[in-house]
Amino acid sequence: MSDDQAPALSHEEIEAIIAKTPFAVWVGARLDIYRRGEVEISIPMRRELTQHHGFGHGAIIGFLADSACAWAGASVAGDVVTSEYKLNLVAPAVGQTLVGCGSIVHAGGRQVVCRADLYAIASERRKLVATALATIVQVKR
């Protein structure tokens, strides 16, 4: 991806999508970095987002992985939906914040392959908790 190209959707357009997505609002998703081919989103952890051991729930990690990949894909393809994703959980998600870093692996035609690495931030220490690979598809209207 060329760094000098503008994203297909603007930062404001992605934030508007977040604002009108009730689940994203409920979890507190925030767009921290948004460039063509790259995003970073975060979720402040709270008790309602954990499972019975107190770790970040897999559903929240899945949301973060899906969103990081989809928003990275949207930066090159515009309006998109997720076609599929695979998620590997590698460590318990324990911390004050969860962060998803999404990037483009390959963009071609209407399909964008993306990856996301997900981290738990605890006392300013960043620990990898999951990684995902997704196929994101441009919506044709």
Rank of each mutant, 00 (worst) to 15 (best):
D32F: 02
I33Q: 12
Y34I: 04
Y34N: 01
R36P: 06
G37C: 06
E38S: 04
E38T: 06
E38I: 06
V39D: 01
V39T: 15
I41P: 01
I41T: 10
I43K: 00
P44Q: 09
R46Y: 05
E48C: 11
E48V: 14
L49K: 11
T50L: 14
T50E: 06
Q51L: 10
Q51H: 12
H52D: 09
H52F: 12
H52L: 13
G56L: 15
H57V: 07
A59I: 13
I60W: 04
I60H: 03
I61V: 15
I61H: 01
I61S: 02
G62E: 08
G62T: 11
G62W: 02
F63K: 02
F63Y: 14
F63T: 14
L64H: 03
A65C: 13
A65L: 09
A65T: 08
A65G: 14
D66L: 03
S67V: 12
A68R: 01
A68E: 03
C69I: 08
W71Y: 15
W71E: 02
A72M: 08
A72I: 04
G73V: 11
A74F: 03
S75P: 05
S75V: 06
S75K: 06
A77N: 11
G78L: 00
G78Y: 07
D79L: 13
V80I: 12
V81D: 06
T82Y: 07
T82A: 08
T82E: 12
S83D: 10
E84W: 04
E84P: 01
K86V: 02
L87W: 01
N88W: 01
L89R: 02
L89H: 03
A91W: 11
A91M: 06
P92Q: 07
A93E: 01
A93G: 15
V94Y: 00
V94K: 13
V94A: 00
G95L: 06
Q96T: 15
T97S: 00
T97E: 12
T97H: 08
L98W: 00
V99C: 09
G100Y: 06
G100S: 10
G100R: 09
G100M: 09
C101Q: 12
G102P: 00
G102H: 00
S103F: 00
I104K: 08
H106N: 13
A107N: 06
G108K: 13
G109L: 10
R110W: 05
R110C: 10
R110T: 15
R110L: 14
Q111A: 14
V112I: 14
V112Y: 05
V113H: 11
C114M: 07
R115I: 09
R115S: 15
R115A: 13
A116T: 08
A116H: 03
D117K: 14
D117L: 07
D117R: 14
L118G: 03
L118A: 03
L118F: 01
Y119F: 15
Y119D: 02
A120W: 01
A120F: 05
I121N: 03
A122D: 15
A122G: 07
R126M: 13
R126P: 06
R126E: 15
R126N: 09
L128G: 10
V129R: 01
V129A: 05
A130S: 14
T131Y: 11
T131Q: 13
L133C: 05
L133D: 03
A134H: 04
T135K: 03
